[in-house]
Design a protein around this nucleic acid. Structure first.
Lengths: 233, 233
DNA sequence: GAGATCCCGATTCACCTTGTAACGGCCCGG
DNA sequence: CCGGGCCGTTACAAGGTGAATCGGGATCTC
């Protein structure tokens, strides 16, 4: 995970309390120190006080748009990393945002794992942290290369759709543990996903069909609890 | 269990007195400092006064739904942990609730041991308590891993159903003591379970069949009293 | 516009749970 | 020492619940 002796600090600038909560809880859970601000004014003040390593910046704020906030913050500290958060149906601005100094951007509604991945990626770049972690996840004869988004089992490449890939990644990251369907919905799917559907089962089924063609069953069902990767022999 | 020099404080927000009682007694028994509130108003006041570490929050309250209460509480103290309590047949809101700021949720009717487990889990996360406790329960050649929900005896994996698993866990946690059938019903089964059945005996029998295949008898019957794990040799 | 992807609903299937009931052993009284 | 009743054990069956899978329609991507 993150360097334990100096947890990175993230400032969340977001006026919708629900979204701010999701981001706060998620990042806290992943070991970041988190502060929040609901307006551009507060953001500038909070940035001076807490000196974050990274800012998650909503583009639509009650007191003016995020570009200006970004510019202001950058004027004071040009090593500050910024990830813009924007509505999906405004992709036109996004490029502009990146051009104006954002290091990355995320569209709403987002999936929680996506946010964590991007925050880590940006911090790794801007803090010049060594590429310490092997980007290849392994479990038995299964390997996933996060750099190339490619998956292999027993040497054979496996072609996965984005959702399948994200689901498998979450299972791999929690190999040896059992994850509930709720957790999978929370982490892999977008935050506005409603329950009452069998999406998770469906995608587990897809994964099994593609993966178990190349070897023994890999994903284990714990009835009433959730799913996990089968323990290694 | 919990850090003895600073017992965690829990605020229960629940309008049904029966449920509130169950929760209060259970958590008190497990060493928590407990306060209760029956409405959202009271909850906010009580939270200011007692500064709990965690709130158990019923979603259906007489004066408005729990999300707003959660939001209000969080606005004042953003490090506050919240576990939602909700009826089973309202799963639609559940993910939304989590997304809107809950750390976990419990559905009614619940099993008492489940509540304690979740409260501990959430506090461990939010208070950054070290993962000090070995998540593996042991008793002789029997081991139970609570992270993977897996059980082994003499190295051999034992496949248990959820109820069997919960029952064995309760016996393990009370190893060396004798537990009455009533206690088992109360802790392992849901609180609204009615008696007049031999469920407990049945499940003890299932456990014996699965466990004693791999070694000498493990579960001891105290006629007229209850069950316990046999003392170690 | 074509193809892939995603998600929902329905169906089927498997297993879990619980109640009933028969059997057996333990304990107590005679 | 014997018999009866009670408690515990276990088998069996029915019902319920969660999971797996498939097809179709909506949506997105190129």
């Amino acid at each position: 995970m993150e360097n334990p002796e100096s947890p990175a600090t993230v400032l969340i600038v977001e006026d919708e309390p629900g979204i701010a909560d999701i981001l706060r809880i998620t990042l806290k859970y992943h070991g970041f120190t988190v502060h929040t601000a609901a307006t551009g004014r507060q953001a500038v003040i909070a940035a001076r006080e807490h000196r974050p390593d990274l800012v998650l910046l909503d583009v639509m704020l009650p007191d003016g748009n995020g570009w200006e906030v970004c510019r202001t913050l950058r004027a004071e500290r040009d090593d500050l990393a910024v990830i813009f958060v924007t509505a999906r149906d405004a992709p036109r601005d996004v490029v502009g945002g990146l051009a104006l100094g954002g290091d990355d951007y995320i569209t709403k509604p987002f999936g929680v794992d996506e946010v964590v991945a991007r925050v880590h990626a940006v911090l790794r770049r801007t803090r010049r942290e060594p590429e310490a972690v092997d980007p290849v996840l392994r479990h038995g004869d299964l390997e996933m290369d996060e750099a190339t988004y490619s998956v292999r089992r027993a040497g054979e490449p496996v072609d996965l759709t984005p959702t399948e890939y994200n689901l498998l990644r979450h299972l791999l990251r929690n190999a040896g543990r059992i994850v509930t369907k709720e957790q999978l919905l929370q982490h892999v799917w977008q935050y506005d996903t409603v329950v009452e559907s069998t999406v998770v089962e469906t995608y587990i089924s897809y994964l099994r069909r593609k993966l178990d063609r190349l070897g023994p069953p890999l994903i284990e069902t714990r009835r009433g609890i959730g799913y996990g990767l089968r323990a290694l022999a």
